[in-house]
Design a protein around this nucleic acid. Structure first.
Lengths: 341, 341
DNA sequence: CTTTTTTTGACGTGCGCACCTCAATTTCTT
DNA sequence: AAGAAATTGAGGTGCGCACGTCAAAAAAAG
């Protein structure tokens, strides 16, 4: 049985009092440089590590984390909401709570207004899934200054100094490119890209990754200009009909946004019976079914449960002034086939 | 600010004393059926959840977990060892320690002897990565009875009632099969399977998965009998030379064990310049390099860091009599291409 | 109804740390 | 050297719970 050193041991080893150790450990004022060093040396020497249980108990701290998700009600968002609920339940015992708010992410002012109204005594951290916009970015920065931990969740604001939880979308697009190229093994033809809208940063990055990989590694393929559905089924069908009417050697389809269902439904009525290599993003009941019956060749996904838990761990680590474990928190780009569903 | 209910609140709500609440919560004897129900109802009503920090503090409990890994010194095992070290460091603050012991896994008696010598006061749980064998299985069962939590780590004993951390190897083999079939897109030819030894359960299961998928979905391919290297480079080279000398339409190679380096090195000298779809298991510096430069088409992997952390969480949950979060603990079969390394 | 057994209550202690107050001491100013 | 300021020590309290002791009350057995 190995006894862990306590603050008392540190005090003895450093030749100072408990109060002083406390001052050093909690970075309170009025401690001389020399004393700080003495204590830190003792900490090093003993390998002292704060007992988190005791810290949390003493602080009697409850973490309340909020996930701001889009109000659009897709299967993927619903899955995220469920994961937040699960995390909330299973982390109760560890003194953290998590809840969801739905915000109209297409209205940056409304989002910024909501964020602006948040107070540090109602929530300790917030994970925001909002598309890039200056208003939102500013609001996030201000939250951060007000002492609320902010992370970007699955959707990015460019080059902000906040933590980002989610995959590298350029790489995700590249993966799609390689899968399509590999699955077609030298066949010549054209690749259709379908997206909700190409104005979203994530979609743009995925498209770039796809283009670069295809251009570099699969010159037999040609990527067509993106088709935007604007989440409108009839529009989707119309533009796809036009496309398939004018191009006769389409061999692959890549849906670069989150609404695979809309895109694939439109596609099915337009390109029925054609042998297409189809790649879409994210696991949902719909995409899983499509993968099972072969309408989709592969799925590129990021685990929503992992993303939620990771966001919580990161916010918590930041609040406690610890460094998150980078390797644990990196969200992987998952490739899902029928066999590893 | 929401106040969490405490045992005191439960006592008040149930109309009993703190001592009685304690008796019920910790399942101590001498409590009447009625009282137990009253307390449980109060717990339900208030949504009371034990404060883990307080529990751990009061119990002043330190968890010591052990990872029993094979003494064979491959890159993958070394990576596992590193991950255990990382976990040990980052979980210090949460009162858990983890360390590695290396055992000669090819000697079941030695393994069983080591396990038999373990006492419950030196370790709280052990994760064992040992190939299937009756002796080891028995020893694990006895450990479990002696109050040491045991989990099977990445290598399985069939149908034991212990937790298993690792991927479904049949599915992993199936994934390999689908990747090979997809990447070859109808090309006819033969698939070579290379393994350290086919006597390991994991390897057998992967082979089965591969066979079934190829047979069902890719009748253009034919899987050849497995080649065993016995971890011997010269033997590997010899048998592969023989194989490639007698078969002229080999189109794919699947390395079903963990020693991709040995197999690929032998392969390279034998089948230099041939266009083979090669699939191997696990990320190591070697396999990553091979993936980068195209010698490997894809990697099938299970995240060793995740596996280690998952094993620790599961052992801990078992000790605390909690249920692990199934979805968090499932190890995924990862497909890794150049683009999502 | 008494005796035995079971059930309950009251109370104390300690886990390791944070945070607070009030002196006592040391160091710096002028 | 005297006062002001900075630094340190001593000590207490409480976080929520586990665990132990002892006595009182209630229920079961005779």
């Amino acid at each position: 049985m190995v006894e862990r050193p306590t603050t008392k041991d540190v005090a003895k080893a450093a030749g100072v009092s408990l109060a002083t150790v406390d001052r050093v450990l909690n970075e309170r004022p009025n401690v001389s440089r020399k004393t700080i060093e003495k204590v830190n040396e003792a900490v090093e020497k003993l390998g002292f590590v704060r007992n988190l249980a005791a810290v949390n108990l003493a602080k009697n701290r409850i973490y309340r984390f909020c996930f701001a998700l889009p109000s659009s009600d897709t299967q993927y968002i619903r899955e995220l909401e469920k994961q937040v609920g699960d995390a909330d339940r299973s982390l109760k015992t560890e003194l953290v709570g998590a809840h969801v708010v739905r915000l109209p992410m297409d209205d940056p002012h409304a989002v910024a207004r909501y964020l602006g109204g948040l107070a540090a005594d109602e929530v300790d951290g917030i994970a925001i899934m909002a598309p890039e916009s200056p208003q939102v970015r500013d609001a996030m920065g201000r939250l951060s200054e007000r002492g609320i931990e902010v992370v970007q969740f699955l959707a990015g604001q460019v080059d902000l100094s906040l933590d980002f939880i989610g995959v590298d979308n350029y790489a995700a697009g590249s993966v799609a490119g390689r899968l399509i190229g590999r699955f077609l093994r030298g066949v010549e033809g054209k690749v259709v890209v379908i997206a909700d809208t190409m104005r979203s940063l994530d979609t743009i990055q995925r498209r770039l990754g796809l283009d670069d990989t295809i251009r570099r590694s699969f010159p037999n393929l040609q990527v067509l200009p993106s088709v935007e559905t604007y989440s409108d089924p009839s529009r989707a069908k119309r533009v796809l009909e036009h496309l398939f009417g004018h191009q006769d050697d389409i061999v692959a389809v890549y849906v670069g946004s989150l609404d695979a269902e809309l895109a694939l439904t439109a596609l099915q009525s337009v390109a029925h019976g054609q042998d297409l290599v189809t790649i879409v993003h994210e696991r949902t009941p719909f995409t899983e079914a499509a993968l099972s019956d072969g309408r989709i060749a592969a799925l590129i996904a990021q685990d929503p449960g992992h993303a939620v838990r990771s966001a919580i761990r990161i916010m918590r680590a930041r609040i406690e002034n610890r460094d998150p474990i980078a390797s644990q928190e990196r969200i992987r780009i998952e490739i899902i086939l029928k066999e590893n569903m």
